[in-house]
Design a binder for these strands. Structure first.
Lengths: 239, 239
DNA sequence: AAAACAGATATTGTCGACAATATAGGCGCT
DNA sequence: AGCGCCTATATTGTCGACAATATCTGTTTT
């Protein structure tokens, strides 16, 4: 599962490399969410000086993966349900608008390319052996293509450069391999159709519903899990 | 004209102070847009070491006021018309959603407080002596209140913490003291009404139109200015 | 015994120096 | 004379040490 962010430029400086390593480590939970970051310890672990580490930390802060307090230190962000919902609300706004702009600004070639991509995903799904692929990489591919298609640097930077690392972190931490692949596939197809028709208003609405549906799916799932745990607790209390 | 960002916490470290100073300097054009940043020179000017300066630069980069390239250096962002339009598109998406959330999440007290604020602005406008005040501080006050009213940390951070510095920069650089104060006032009133009615859908739509109107107003103004300059050029050529 | 103060320890913020990389200017070559 | 290469200079990236601030621990005081 190698998902590379299209806006992420090649790491040239060592601070860049450490940043990317830590980014992966945080997203995948190797560095625990909510844990405090010890600069001396991490500097030793990555064999770099504290200055370089701090440079990396600054970039992690930029994509909202850690939080800093002056004279106190840095903490990895905690994954809360509220945070997840807020993130999806924000995505709905930004990606919705990106989709509207994509309908306006994408070139015909770009649209064709995206339609081709969808066909490949359809085959992959038919074969049923690449569901995980489709859900992870394919899904991201689709969203990235739409966002880049907006041709709006501000939107691209905000979504791809900042939000999506957090999105991936939540996906990993909450173990979300959502089982709504086939429905999502149809939604993707409809969105692409709206873009091809240059219907920005519809494209935005569909993208917003697509993301909102994903959010509601998560809400339900979490509600179920909580209900599960509470039932378990009741059993414990009774025994 | 002292506009303080509500999310901006008190500067405690020297890097913070330098960051704020440079922020103002860039927004108001004292440090020219598009100019290259010389670390040694600025470190001397602010009487700090390069490490501290770089810390400040990192924060400036976070709110999109400078751009860095590895092994090359930092530049102040350039204010282009495309950039301005992209910024407004992004605002439309984010503040629209923030407004929808505000209609959902603001407390009754908050709404009352905002209505009071509007009354004060109305008086100020009636007196006709504080037009500049209304346009600058009052306008920002209104938007800040709505954004904070969303109670969505993600949205608040993105808009208040990052985008609004750029917005202010564009306002200064392009000398925008838009003369649509009275219309904007009415629009504000309608938005607050929608929020008070807890009509999130309408509130979002009104906010989006409000920002889009502002954007179109700018587009027209710039188009006029260009026409003006070209006419001036023609005169020059003829002479 | 609990709270508050004081000192000890650890962590973060800042500094100046060195190493690596890019830019500018002069030299030779075609 | 124009182009490209190579050296010299300047700028950025990285390092280790010191200063300032916060945290922890043990003692004292009410």
């Amino acid at each position: 599962m190698k998902i590379t962010n299209p806006t992420q430029q090649a790491a040239v400086t060592t601070a860049d490399k450490v940043f990317q390593q830590m980014q992966h480590a945080i997203v995948e939970g190797e560095i625990a969410a909510g844990s405090k970051i010890s600069e001396p310890e991490l500097a030793k672990r990555y064999q770099i000086s504290r200055s370089t580490l701090r440079e990396a930390l600054n970039r992690l802060e930029k994509c909202h993966l850690i939080e800093r307090k002056a004279n106190v230190g840095s903490r990895v962000v905690t994954c809360t349900i509220e945070g997840l919902l807020e993130l999806y609300i924000t995505r709905e706004a930004l990606e919705g608008m990106a989709c509207r702009q994509a309908a306006k600004n994408m070139s015909d070639e770009e649209i064709l390319h995206m339609q081709d991509m969808l066909k490949i995903h359809a085959q992959t799904q038919d074969l049923k052996d690449g569901v995980a692929y489709y859900q992870e990489e394919g899904n991201l591919d689709f969203h990235y293509k739409v966002i880049l298609g907006s041709h709006n640097k501000q939107l691209i930077e905000l979504i791809c450069g900042q939000l999506y690392h957090l999105v991936r972190m939540y996906r990993c931490q909450f173990g979300m391999h959502s089982p709504r692949a086939s429905r999502a596939f149809d939604e993707h197809a409809n969105i692409i159709q709206a873009i091809a028709d240059r219907d920005g208003e519809l494209a935005e609405m569909l993208m917003r519903r697509h993301i909102a549906a994903s959010r509601k799916n998560i809400e339900n799932k979490i509600a179920q899990e909580i209900a599960h745990k509470e039932q378990a607790n009741i059993v414990l209390i009774k025994s």
